[in-house]
Design a binder for these strands. Sequence first.
DNA 1: ATATAAAAAGACCTTTTTATCCTTAAATAA
DNA 2: TTATTTAAGGATAAAAAGGTCTTTTTATAT
Lengths: 144, 144
Amino acid sequence: MFSKACEYGIKATIFIAVKSLHDQRVSLKEIAEEIDSPVAFTAKILQLLAKSGIVDSHKGPTGGFQMDRTGIDNVKVYDIVCAIDGDKIFNGCGLGLKHCDAEHPCPVHDKFIAIRDNLTTMLQKTSMFELATGLDIGLTQLKR
Amino acid sequence: MFSKACEYGIKATIFIAVKSLHDQRVSLKEIAEEIDSPVAFTAKILQLLAKSGIVDSHKGPTGGFQMDRTGIDNVKVYDIVCAIDGDKIFNGCGLGLKHCDAEHPCPVHDKFIAIRDNLTTMLQKTSMFELATGLDIGLTQLKR
DNA sequence: ATATAAAAAGACCTTTTTATCCTTAAATAA
DNA sequence: TTATTTAAGGATAAAAAGGTCTTTTTATAT
Ligand code: FES
Ligand code: FES
């Protein structure tokens, strides 16, 4: 469904959101431990998320990653997927035709876009705040 | 969503079904032309589909690929995806946790399985017959 | 029997994805 | 100011996916 990079990106952002809600910055190392991901690879993904404005980064001692309250409310899973994997999953053809087009549909078009649109809507509606609170109260987990 | 191999495999099988409904066997070359795929790569995928019992293959002059009427009715898109990509998409965690488990859910579990189960059901219900007839009457297409 | 046509099989190559390592830049605290 | 800490950046490597090529096997028609 999503690339490894995207899975790590989503998990990292949720964790940063949790910590930010407690007014704590979090380091790359801590993130990689918490989401069980390769440190250097996670660094690349966080760089991209920082460039995309999804998270804030700060160098130096006491540095790390954080989100402000506006970001925690406004960033949706959809934004992270777009930033890392692009929007092909949201508007591409299920059978790989160059253009998904209702006028020239592939055999699975009608059935596929119904699912695809549900996925898109779900990801567009799901905010970091919602996912972070579920994790914070121990309802969900990022490892295993 | 699906791998390239899987996209080619689904399109190839639909085309074989259309031809089989007209009692025609179809060669690798013809399939690759019709679905706009690399010939040698398509050969590998068809080998796998033949081994999986999804299509029948015959060597020699007048050889090629075909499906019997039972197969056309019974083979579902789901079966092709399982044969080529495996079942990870149908029961794996959306965030890549080792086990998708409602008792130990990841942050997106509830929302994700709703979509994932819809996809699974849709693919389990959609037969080659249904897709082949839509293609045969010109309602859908496999290229462009 | 033999030439031919088609898929099967296996070795190989290329590109993309995933992952690591090392150096540089920036910020802080002493 | 200087040592330290942390992210940024770039080069490289390993693994997986995507794709090609050549040889072998099997079936058919002449
Ligand atoms: S054309 Fe294939 S999903 Fe729309
Ligand atoms: S645990 Fe992640 S989708 Fe079920």
